[in-house]
Amino acid sequence: MEQNRYKLNKELAQMLKGGVIMDVTTPEQAKIAEAAGACAVMALERIPADIRAAGGVSRMSDPKMIKGIQDAVSIPVMAKCRIGHFAEAQILQAIEIDYIDESEVLSPADDKFHINKRKFNVPFVCGAKDLGEALRRINEGASMIRTKGEPGTGDIVQAVRHMRMMNSEIRKIQSMSEDELFNEAKVLQVPYELVQYVHENGRIPVVNFAAGGVATPADAVLMMQLGAEGVFVGSGIFKSGNPEKRAAAIVKAVTNFNDSKMLAELSEDLGEAMVGINEDEISLLMAERGK
């Protein structure tokens, strides 16, 4: 991938900042999401909560279904491929997807290597639960990062843990002397230049969203105040009682994440939230896939 293309791909993520990216499974849901103010949609056959319930091997969605969603909306369309499955990624690039999510929500296709994302012209977003994972994905060519959280649970605890972990590691690197950065690069298994960037800028070199377990406007605000630049909402919307209202409320809450009075109003009468599962009630930790 040429340098210019990588810059353009990072810049598309910049345009998504302050926005909410919603999981959708049909063109109708995509239209609801767009009308509710989604800045992009993630097209997938089953939302994470249903993937979790169904079990078995979970794969990239049918390209025809993704194309149906591309035709239904004018906002960017993202889709997921399995970790390490570069052939699925090639298919998504062939149908001109706007962003590929190399995602732990699907069953990993490679237990050792992620996709060499530098070989692609379309951008990739990848999950991370700490700074090392984030920088390794960036080194492989990811132009956007999200916390892994724990998809399909409606439980925010893991997303919070991952965001706090990343923030704390960034602060640690910021306070290191230059001499210590070389060893830190070794520990994190990433090139020195990436560690140096974090040291100098106090952030990772790409946009960082929160994902995995966001179910309410307050969850979204929690993540924004912890430093997320935007939010992915997966199962939280279309598994809830009133998807339109909940989606619109989360969008507004993200825009005004420092206004608690507005958040209180937005949190009223949203109907039933997704039921959710606590992290200690689940046997499959998706966040442990792909390090």
């Binding site: 345009m15 998504l16 900042k17 302050g18 926005g19 767009e34 009308a35 103010g37 989604a38 800045c39 992009a40 004018s74 906002i75 960017p76 619109a248 969008v251 507004k252 825009t255 005004n256």
Partner: peptide, 15 residues
């Protein structure tokens, strides 16, 4: 600024 015009347009109304 740049972003998604559908989102910004909607929020301009709602806010």
């Amino acid at each position: 600024p740049g972003g998604e015009s559908t989102v910004i347009g909607k929020l301009l109304h709602e806010l």
